[in-house]
Nucleic acid binder design. Structure first.
Length: 419
RNA sequence: GGAGAGAUGGCCGAGCGGACGAAGGCGGCGGUCUUGAAAACCGCUGAUGGUUAUGCCAUCCGGGGGUUCGAAUCCCUCUCUCUCCGCCA
């Protein structure tokens, strides 16, 4: 959520952002918002004047009554005033509702240094790491390797649930679990994160806090007849832990991590990545969330990416870091780095982590603040999140990068003690 | 699932329909004292919005609604928490 004052006073900034995000159609909403804002202010001044009068007169009635004097005439007047106030209050409420809806659907402002372009082809490669493996035999896809090793049963997963689900079996289940523990250990011991196991279902307020609702409800799974949604990422519960709180400055920065399954409807991606583990309705992820002081968020984003990269470095798998273009940057983010891992089967780099600085966008939605010790004022915190990493895709990367001619694969040294 | 109790500021906790944005305590901040610290003492210490802005105004006592000239206080309703009984991984 953007600051109302920015939308009103720095409208060009917001228009520029919508242009760069390739969302020209949403510009109309800004005009509506401005109109509603002015209307609201006018009504507010009117109704507050009436309320002021009521407060004064009510006090007077109290005094008259205690002296035993008649209050009938005044009483009648006040009753009419009360009705008037009620009507105006209702009008203000309706305007608030409308403008809130608009506000909740406007994406975050973008950082100055985000590469400008309407889509992912404008993403900018920041750095590459590692040696891509060369194979002298016919390269296999991860699902071929997994099925040969009997560690994932896609067919029976479909029987149990449907398409886009996997049934990990035997050594496969063990490898997945090893990866989770390995990742968590690195972040806990080397990066000083605090581990959580959050609810895997959250309510709509929480989903709104991080920006999944109201705009992206089609991407979510909702539990029938309850105000529960399956989490699409642990970013949602972790970031909202301190919703509606005022933190002390000395508590910051907060580094939170959690392993959770993630549930996504993948609406709109029919036909994409239909085979294998790449795109599932349910996948495991270790998530990193930071809650920091505003002047720290830029450097914390760089650190966050490094922390996620560390996992692939330890596993010795080639990857590159890209900065997403203005058109590809997510709704809540002001700047996003993706880590893309090399997948020999696809001969392509594929996203394995997405690290975003959301600045005060989520903090304003979720109402997360801290007391600035210097100014004594209450200010919004900045929030960041990143995958550290997507476990299923790391599983794929291991199978494909460490495959052998006979169709088997080897395990990176760092992981061996977890198996 | 049945019966009952409760939700008040950063925390604890008081609050007969007008005195209440709210006693008291703790914590925090500033000061006196001290070589320094502690103790003691004194003072200050909520948020949001509006504004003609060192000020003023409005709103907020779990959420929503009602009664009333006026609600933290009375009524309805929802959510959550706690206690007892039952069931259960």
């Amino acid at each position: 959520m953007l600051d109302t004052k920015v939308i009103i006073n720095e409208k060009n900034k917001v228009l520029d952002m919508l242009e760069k995000r390739n969302l020209k159609a949403e510009k109309e909403n800004l005009k509506d918002f401005e109109k509603l804002y002015n209307e609201r202010n006018q009504l507010l001044q009117e109704v507050e004047q009436h309320k002021h009068n009521r407060n004064i007169q009510s006090k007077k009635i109290g005094e008259l009554k205690s002296k035993g004097q008649s209050i009938e005439k005044l009483s009648k007047e006040m009753k009419d005033l009360g009705e008037k106030i009620k009507g105006l209050d209702e009008k203000v409420r309706q305007i608030d509702e409308k403008s809130k809806t608009i506000l909740l659907n406007i994406p975050n402002l973008l950082d100055q240094d985000v590469p400008v372009g309407p889509d992912a082809t404008y993403n900018k490669v920041i750095r590459e790491w590692g040696q891509r493996p060369e194979f002298k035999f016919k390269i296999r896809q991860h699902w071929e390797i997994a099925e040969k090793a009997d560690i994932i049963d896609f067919k029976r997963a479909t029987k149990l649930a449907g398409s886009r689900f996997a049934l990990y079996k035997g050594e496969g289940a063990k490898l997945e679990r090893a990866l989770i523990n390995f990742m968590l250990d690195v972040h806990l011991k080397e990066h000083r994160y605090i581990e959580f196991i959050p609810p895997f279902m959250v309510n709509s307020k929480t989903m709104t806090g991080t920006g999944q609702l109201p705009k992206f409800k089609d991407d979510l799974f909702k539990v029938q007849d309850f105000d529960y949604y399956l989490v699409p990422t642990a970013e949602v519960p972790l970031t909202n832990i301190h919703a509606d709180e005022i933190l002390e400055e000395k508590q910051l920065p907060l580094y939170y991590t959690a392993f959770t399954p993630c549930f996504r409807s993948e609406a709109g991606s029919w036909g994409k990545d239909t085979r294998g583990l790449i795109r599932q309705h349910q996948f495991n992820k270790v998530e990193l969330v930071k809650i920091v002081k505003p002047d720290q968020s830029e450097q914390e984003l760089e650190k966050l990416v490094n922390e996620a990269e560390k996992i692939l470095q330890y596993l010795n798998i080639a990857y590159r870091v890209v900065c997403l273009s203005t058109g590809d940057t997510g709704f809540s983010s002001s700047k996003t780095y993706d880590i893309e891992v090399w997948l020999p089967g696809q001969k392509a780099y594929r996203e394995i982590s997405s690290c975003s600085n959301c600045r005060d966008f989520q903090a304003r939605r979720a109402n997360i603040k801290y007391r600035n010790k210097d100014t004594g004022n209450v200010e919004l915190v900045h929030t960041l999140n990143g995958s550290g990493l997507a476990v299923g895709r790391t599983f794929i990367a291991i199978l494909e990068n460490f495959q052998k001619e006979d169709g088997s694969f080897s395990i990176p040294d760092k992981l061996k003690k977890y198996l």
